[in-house]
Amino acid sequence: MTDLCISFHKGGGRKLPVIDAANLSLDQRQAVGIVGESGSGKTMLCRALIGTLPRHGAETVSGTVHFDGQELAGASERVWRGIRGREIGYIPQSSLAGLNPVLTVETQLVESITAVGSLSRQEARQEAFALLERVQIPRAQQVLKARAHQLSGGMRQRVMIAAAIAQGPKLLIADEPTTALDVTIQREILSLITQLRQELNMALILVSHDLAVIEEVCDNVMVMYAGASVEAGPVEALSKAPRHPYTRALRVSRVDRAVPGQDLEAIPGDAASVGSWPAGCRFWPRCALADDDCRRDPQPALMPTAQQLSACIHPERIPELEL
């Protein structure tokens, strides 16, 4: 994905940019995490990757998305139907509410399996059972007959994962799959995703606002701030020596580093919201290192520094992390 720009349609043919510089790359079987403030555009980016932007009143304005030899930016709905589910599986954000409350788990799973077409009803049922076993649901036979409200949050998320991998996609996109879950269940779901990825040779895009979650599961990470990629690279590089002040701030504001009785190093102020992005680097109103150069357009682009890419124009000024 190179320099992707996405806009909402507003009345009178006006456009409201929500993402204007997203860059992401991953190889087969790789896992990349996307982290960023709420509202930074993570979910819109996922929607661009499964072709559902139009349903949400938005479209890709420019930039490219190469997937397995195909160009997907601006692809037609017909092209997307061959990709969605088959090539790219998706677990939407707040998918705990994503199951249909009146249909059984079996009916819903059979639906996502037979979307491929070639299986009989009976085969699809067997496949549904196998899928539940694959996502390690105990008493799979009973769960097949259950409806959403009879399942715990962790169970429902397993069913959603089963539906997303039903057609054996090459890439799985999971948008905040554990945010609504307990820490103990979160741990289980994360190891399930990791295990499935290995068994099925899938690549993974994992969205989270918790850097610790991404560090546990992914090889690479891309950090978003106000509609732009601001840092990207190997997980270890970004956690040991972040080269963008926003990434650094995410690391130091974590409670697991904090001393009880002392303030956390919180980022001052609030995130820039869509439609009121500042000129130049969008992080400058909250950045201790900002100077006049930072406030001047254009927005700085991702550039190689150390082992990663950073969009900060003063990466050398960023203090080292004390670990």
Binding site: A266, I267, D270
Partner: peptide
């Protein structure tokens, strides 16, 4: 803090403290 992101979480925890 379960429905807010990490930098907002840090601000809220500081306030409570």
């Amino acid at each position: 803090t379960s429905s807010i992101d990490q930098s907002a979480q840090a601000q809220l925890l500081n306030l409570l403290r």
